[in-house]
Design a binder for these strands. Structure first.
Length: 425
RNA sequence: GGAGGGUUAGGCUAAUGGUAAGUCACCGGUCUUGAAAACCGGCGGGCGAAAGCCCUUGGGGGUUCGAGUCCCUCACCCUCCGCCA
């Protein structure tokens, strides 16, 4: 949520900055806000009168004097206050809806663009592996090795689900452990294992609600939704708290499965592990002081990149332009891994600084060093990494002419020393 | 699912329907070589240059001139019973 004071005082600038994200008209905001403030002024004046006179009534009654004239006058005032409060509430509700549906402002360093083709490449790390044969896609590799079973998965749950078997299931589990160990032991994150379904408040806090409910699985008869990313439960760990500045930055790493309806993606990536209704992800979350949050974004991104480096996977980092930026984000780097089977780069991590956008919605503050008024923290998060897509990258990049797959060295301790996934690996 | 108890500011804890008292912690100051103690002040939010005003007792609604207090409703927490990995 944007700062209402900022919008009020910098209306033109806000309209101009929002226009790069497709929603530039703030005229209804302006009229609603002004109306609300006018009514509020009037109501406060009447409340002051009522408080004053009511006290007088109490005094008169104590002295056994007559107060009926004051009482009947206040009956009318109370009625008027009630009417005003009612309208103020309505305007406030409308204002709230407006603000909750308004995206974050892009950071000045974010390029203005029309679509993902306008995302500049920030850096390229490693190089494409060369093959003496035509590299296969992960679906073919996985099915031939008997480690991924899409057919039976469909019988269980329909399209966009997978059934991992044998070395495939082990590989998935090994990756989760490898990633969590790396982030907790070397990058300073505290591991958390949050609930996989949380209440709607949390989704409003991080920005998935109210605007994107169609992407979520709701638990019938409950106020809960399945998490589409650990960002939701983990960022909300500190909702309605005032954090100690000395404790910042707070770093959490969390594994969760992620559940997404993928509404509107019909026909995209229908086969394979790329786009699933349920997938595993290790998520990194940081809470930062406002001054340092962009340094924190660089560190967070580098922590995610480190996973790919250790696995020996080639990737590039792109900076999302205004058109591609997520609703809540002020600035986002996407890490894209090279997939030889698809002959293209695919997103495997998305690292964002939300500044105080989520903190304002979830009410997460910190008391600045040396005291003073609490300020909203800056929240950041990034995948570290999407596990399913990492499996895809390993299968495609480490495939051999005989159809087997080499296990990256960093992963072997997590797979009982296994060096190669074969037919019965 | 059944029965009972509870929710006041960071913690604890008061308030015959009369406008949130106190205490601990914390922060600042005085004193001190330094610290502690003692003493003074601050310590929920909004608007405001300030004076000040408004809001705040888990959420929402009602009664009343006036609600922490009375009524309705919802949420959450605790204890016991039942069920359960």
């Amino acid at each position: 949520m944007l700062d209402i004071k900022y919008l009020r005082e910098n209306l033109k600038e806000a309209e101009q900055r929002l226009s790069t994200r497709g929603t530039g008209d703030l005229s209804s905001f302006k009229s609603l806000d002004e109306r609300r403030r006018t009514l509020l002024k009037e109501a406060e004046k009447l409340k002051e009168e009522r408080n004053r006179v009511s006290e007088e009534v109490g005094r008169l009654k104590k002295e056994k004097k007559d107060a009926s004239a004051l009482i009947s006058a206040m009956q009318e005032v109370s009625l008027r206050i009630k009417a005003l409060d009612g309208e103020i509430n309505e305007r406030e509700g409308e204002l709230q809806t407006l603000l909750l549906n308004m995206p974050n402002l892009a950071h000045p360093t974010v390029p203005i663009g029309r679509d993902e083709n306008d995302n500049p490449v920030v850096r390229v790390v490693g190089g494409k592996p060369s093959f003496s044969f035509s590299p296969k896609g992960h679906v073919e590799i996985g099915e031939a090795l008997g480690i991924i079973d899409f057919e039976r998965a469909a019988r269980l749950a329909g399209a966009r689900f997978s059934l991992m078997k044998g070395a495939g299931a082990l590989l998935e589990r090994a990756l989760i452990n490898f990633m969590l160990d790396l982030h907790t032991k070397e990058h300073g994150y505290t591991e958390v294992l949050p609930p996989f379904m949380v209440k709607s408040d949390c989704f409003v806090g991080t920005g998935q609600l109210p605007k994107f409910e169609e992407d979520l699985f709701k638990i019938e008869g409950w106020d809960h939704y399945l998490v589409p990313t650990a960002e939701v439960p983990v960022t909300n760990i500190h909702r309605e708290e005032i954090l100690d500045a000395a404790a910042l930055p707070i770093r959490y790493a969390a594994y969760t499965p992620c559940f997404r309806k993928e509404a509107g993606s019909y026909g995209k990536d229908v086969k394979g592990l790329i786009r699933q209704h349920q997938f595993n992800k290790v998520e990194l979350v940081r809470f930062s002081a406002a001054e340092t949050s962009y340094d924190e974004l660089e560190k967070l991104t580098s922590d995610a990149e480190d996973v790919l480096k250790r696995l020996g996977l080639h990737y590039r980092v792109v900076l999302l332009c205004t058109a591609d930026l997520g609703f809540s984000s002020a600035k986002t780097y996407d890490i894209e891994v090279w997939l030889p089977g698809q002959d293209r780069y695919r997103e495997i991590s998305s690292c964002s600084n939300f500044e105080d956008f989520q903190a304002r919605r979830a009410d997460i503050k910190y008391r600045p060093e040396g005291g003073g008024k609490p300020r909203f923290v800056h929240t950041l998060n990034g995948s570290g990494l999407a596990v399913g897509r990492t499996v895809v990258a390993i299968l495609e990049n480490y495939q051999r002419p005989d159809g087997t797959v080499t296990v990256p060295e960093a992963l072997r301790p997590y797979m009982g020393g296994l060096e190669r996934i074969g037919r019965r690996g």
